[in-house]
Amino acid sequence: MRLSRPARGLLATITAVVLALIYLPLLVVFVNSFSTSQNLTWPPPGFTLEWWAKAFQSDGALDAVLTSLQVALASTAIALVLGTLISIGLQRFEFFGRDAISLLVILPIALPGIVTGIALNNAFRTGLGVQLSILTLIIAHATFCIVTVFNNVIARLRRLGTSLEDASSDLGAGIWTTFRLVTFPQLRSALFAGGLLAFALSFDEIIVTTFTAGSSVKTLPLWILDNLFRPNQAPVVNVIAVVLVLVSIVPIYFAQRIAGAEKVVR
């Protein structure tokens, strides 16, 4: 199939229009962060830098970002380990119940967050009798993050096949050595992609978080929710969002670099 010039042009136009639509609300957020209106009303009545100054003085916001980073890093790490184990198990072995397990992995993300949230809340509090804390939150996040790692890794494993691993063990390498020197390097970009998505999912999750975070744990989305209710804090929230979007370029860029570099090598 070879696309005609007009077809390519049409695709490019659609992409451009959708991208514009994707960035339109973000533009609103950006503009509102300089607006003198405290209630995010449009059009902005005036220009001010007050919210930017306030945002950078806000300890609450900084703490919340740090908490979210901790939670996202920890749950991503757990998801990376568990997700990789499951995908190797499911991809390299054939056994009874394989389908059930792949369903089990998908379930935490496929079931609506509120179901996961109240189920875990109920299990932690009344079932296990533990108090909600940052740990319960990490456990909950890791549970639904496993699937993003799993999806990426199993797709990669399927494409890789087993020939290189077989060669490695034929040459006398042990299981661990084979994994470390042969399998893992080939999985790296898949792990990175899955991990990044898991991180993003956890970082912005609010529904499960509402039900599983301890009272003193304030992740960024919870902080934002709180502050949207507080008098005169809404524009500060916009500033934080703008900063996050800008800062997020860095990890995404590196993820892309790694993925891109691998493509060239292959």
Binding site: K54, Q57, S58, D59, G60, A61, D63, S215, S216, D226, N227, F229, R230, P231, N232, Q233, V236
Partner: peptide, 17 residues
Amino acid sequence: VSLLAWPGYVEDGSNDP
């Protein structure tokens, strides 16, 4: 001491010094 309150009832300056 651990407090539960409406937003804006317990302010410790972390949102606005």
